[in-house]
């Protein structure tokens, strides 16, 4: 039986999800396995959801497709659990590993299954990796992954960090080690050889109509933002500048012509606050 294991990473642009998938592959290679890693070819804008894949086998790999039925899902940013279908396709008996300050018991999996949580934000900040608003959590998450699965050994991960991480190696090694020791798991760790035999890959039906006919408004790009505009209506002169200059069409008007923020879509660029002539718009930190 094939002993391939498939890992899917979910993060945000800037958090290091793609680097995590590559680093894991490097470490698996040092362990004598046959790995591959690649990102989903999509939007890698700062703050936007990013997906990356690592596939590891004990034999040379023939498959080159993206991973739709992962054995392990690693989530670098807890808010993605609400906004992205991160557990889609997760195999029965698979494992969900999340960067979260909450205990693993509170993670909800559609079909039960194994869950693990580690407070990688705290670990990253302790070791000065990234910033408070955007901690770089990838090495802490990989340490946790080494603890709750046997896809990679801690020794190989440590060596991969020394060889391939471009900066702050000691801090990243320490973060991986903290992740290894701090992670908490419910339902047991995951052995390398999956217990479930491989099913044939599902074939996607080809579209009959135009390729893309749904509205992009189903994507609530609000979850990219770190700052949010607050409109002080007592200062507003109803000049429409905020509406006119918004690249995301995130303003509408109320019956009296005052601007109303379409909160689902504002990405928090701050243009409206700069362009508003009476300075009626203030950018505040997103709660």
């Amino acid at each position: 039986m094939a002993a391939v294991i498939e890992i899917r990473f979910h993060g945000r642009g800037g958090q290091g999800a793609v680097v995590a998938s590559e680093l894991l592959a490097q470490a698996a290679f040092l362990d004598g396995k046959w790995p591959q890693s690649f990102p989903f070819f999509g939007v890698e804008r700062r703050g936007a959801p990013v997906t990356a894949y690592t596939r590891i086998d004990t034999h040379p790999l023939g498959v080159r497709t993206s991973i739709t039925t992962p054995d392990v899902v690693v989530v670098l940013e807890p808010s993605l659990l609400r906004t992205q279908p991160v557990t889609d396709g997760l195999r029965d008996g698979g494992l969900l590993l999340v960067n979260s300050s909450h205990p693993a018991e509170e993670l909800v999996l559609p079909a039960g299954g194994r869950r693990a949580a580690v407070d990688a934000n705290r670990i990253a900040v302790t070791h000065g990796l990234g910033s408070l608003t955007m901690p770089i959590v990838n090495t802490a998450m990989l340490g946790a992954l080494a603890a709750v699965t046997d896809v990679v050994s801690m020794e190989a991960l440590d060596r991969a960090i020394q060889e391939f991480v471009p900066a702050r190696r000691p801090e990243n090694q320490a973060a991986a080690s903290d992740g290894y020791h701090d992670v908490r798991v419910v339902g047991g760790t995951l052995p390398f050889t999956p217990s479930v035999p491989r099913a044939a890959a599902a074939t996607l039906p080809l579209p009959e109509g135009p390729m893309a006919s749904e509205s992009s408004e189903r994507y609530h790009t609000a979850d990219w933002r770190t700052l949010r505009p607050v409109i002080h209506l007592e200062k507003c002169t109803r000049c429409n500048f905020c509406w006119k200059f918004c690249p995301d069409d995130a303003f509408s008007f109320d019956a009296e012509g005052y601007p109303v923020l379409r909160t689902d879509y504002c990405k928090g660029c701050g243009i409206c606050a700069v362009e508003c002539p009476p300075r009626a718009i203030e950018m505040v930190e997103e709660a």
């Binding site: 992009s216 408004e217 790009t221 429409n240 690249p247 069409d249």
Partner: peptide
């Protein structure tokens, strides 16, 4: 409300994936 100085009709939908503050999106 001040009169709109450009047409009201929106044919660019929200939810697109330009970076925050992207002038090509506004264009």
């Amino acid at each position: 409300m001040a009169k709109l100085t450009i047409p009201a009709q929106e044919l660019l939908r929200s939810g697109h994936s330009a970076c925050p503050g992207c002038a090509p999106a506004l264009a």
